[in-house]
Measured scan of single mutants.
Amino acid sequence: GKMTGIVKWFNADKGFGFITPDDGSKDVFVHFSAIQNDGYKSLDEGQKVSFTIESGAKGPAAGNVTSL
């Protein structure tokens, strides 16, 4: 299901970062391709987001990332 969290950091040049889930679980990798907006796909440190957990090739990653 949907989770919420805070963006820990995001490197716009490399197109990835990490989200710290509100439930205290392990930080989740986020790739820019998972960001659900029409414009420039980037996130800001400290931004609140909702997301799902998808299993990627390198382990769990955030999917369906939407800013709240």
Rank of each mutant, 00 (worst) to 15 (best):
G1Q: 08
G1D: 15
G1T: 10
K2Y: 15
K2L: 15
K2A: 14
K2R: 07
K2H: 13
K2I: 15
K2S: 14
M3G: 05
M3P: 05
M3N: 09
T4N: 08
T4M: 10
T4S: 10
T4H: 09
T4D: 04
T4I: 11
T4C: 06
T4A: 06
T4F: 12
G5D: 00
G5F: 01
G5E: 00
G5Y: 00
I6D: 03
I6G: 03
I6E: 06
V7H: 00
K8S: 07
K8D: 02
K8R: 11
W9L: 04
W9A: 03
F10V: 04
F10Q: 01
F10D: 00
F10E: 00
F10H: 01
F10P: 00
F10T: 02
F10C: 02
F10Y: 12
A12K: 15
A12I: 14
A12E: 09
A12T: 14
A12N: 12
A12H: 15
A12L: 11
D13C: 12
D13T: 15
D13R: 15
D13Q: 14
K14V: 09
K14E: 05
K14F: 12
K14H: 10
G15P: 01
G15V: 02
G15Y: 03
G15A: 03
G15L: 03
G15T: 02
F16M: 07
F16R: 02
F16C: 04
F16P: 00
F16G: 02
F16I: 11
F16S: 03
G17N: 00
G17Q: 00
G17E: 00
G17M: 01
G17V: 02
F18D: 01
F18C: 03
F18Y: 09
F18K: 04
I19F: 02
I19L: 08
I19A: 01
I19H: 00
I19S: 00
I19E: 00
I19Y: 00
T20D: 03
T20F: 06
T20K: 12
T20Q: 12
T20S: 13
T20I: 15
T20L: 12
P21N: 04
P21Y: 07
P21M: 06
P21I: 05
P21Q: 04
D22K: 06
D22M: 10
D22Q: 07
D22L: 10
D23F: 07
D23W: 06
D23V: 07
D23C: 06
G24D: 06
G24T: 05
G24N: 09
S25T: 13
S25L: 07
S25K: 09
S25R: 09
S25D: 09
S25E: 08
S25M: 09
S25Q: 10
S25Y: 07
K26I: 12
K26D: 12
K26Y: 10
K26Q: 13
K26C: 06
K26H: 12
K26P: 14
D27I: 06
D27P: 08
D27K: 04
D27F: 04
V28H: 02
V28M: 06
V28E: 01
V28W: 03
V28K: 03
F29T: 02
F29H: 02
F29Q: 02
F29V: 03
F29P: 03
V30R: 00
V30A: 03
V30Y: 04
V30N: 00
H31P: 03
H31L: 05
H31C: 04
F32W: 14
F32A: 10
F32K: 12
F32H: 10
F32V: 11
F32S: 09
F32G: 05
F32C: 06
S33R: 11
S33E: 04
S33G: 07
S33W: 07
A34W: 03
A34E: 07
A34I: 04
A34C: 04
I35V: 11
I35S: 03
I35K: 02
I35F: 08
I35N: 03
I35W: 07
I35M: 05
I35C: 04
I35A: 03
Q36G: 09
Q36D: 13
Q36V: 14
N37S: 14
N37R: 10
N37F: 13
D38F: 10
D38C: 08
D38K: 12
D38N: 12
D38E: 15
G39V: 10
G39R: 09
G39I: 09
G39F: 07
G39D: 08
G39Y: 09
G39T: 10
G39K: 13
G39L: 12
Y40Q: 13
Y40S: 15
K41C: 07
K41A: 09
K41S: 09
K41N: 07
K41I: 07
S42E: 08
S42I: 14
S42M: 13
S42N: 09
S42W: 14
S42R: 13
L43H: 02
L43R: 01
L43M: 05
L43V: 05
L43T: 02
L43N: 01
L43G: 01
D44C: 09
D44K: 15
D44M: 14
D44Y: 15
D44H: 15
E45N: 14
E45V: 14
G46H: 06
G46S: 05
Q47V: 09
Q47A: 12
Q47T: 13
Q47Y: 05
Q47K: 06
Q47D: 14
Q47E: 13
K48S: 10
K48F: 09
K48P: 11
K48Q: 10
K48L: 10
K48G: 07
K48M: 12
K48Y: 12
V49T: 02
V49Q: 01
V49H: 01
V49I: 05
V49M: 02
S50V: 09
S50C: 07
F51E: 00
F51L: 03
F51N: 00
F51Y: 11
F51T: 00
F51Q: 00
T52P: 00
T52V: 12
T52M: 08
T52E: 10
T52F: 10
I53P: 04
I53R: 08
I53F: 08
I53Y: 11
E54C: 05
E54Q: 10
E54P: 02
E54N: 08
S55T: 14
S55D: 11
S55R: 11
S55L: 14
G56S: 14
G56K: 09
G56L: 07
G56I: 05
G56V: 07
G56R: 10
A57W: 13
A57C: 06
A57V: 13
A57L: 13
K58A: 13
K58T: 13
K58Q: 13
K58G: 13
G59Y: 08
G59F: 08
P60M: 13
P60G: 06
P60Y: 11
P60E: 10
P60R: 12
P60D: 10
P60W: 07
A61E: 15
A61I: 14
A61W: 15
A61M: 15
A61G: 06
A61C: 06
A61R: 13
A62D: 01
A62C: 04
A62G: 03
A62P: 01
A62N: 01
A62E: 01
G63D: 08
G63F: 12
G63N: 12
G63S: 14
N64G: 08
N64Q: 12
V65S: 01
T66I: 13
T66P: 01
S67C: 07
S67H: 13
S67V: 15
L68Y: 08
L68D: 09
L68C: 06
L68P: 06
L68K: 06
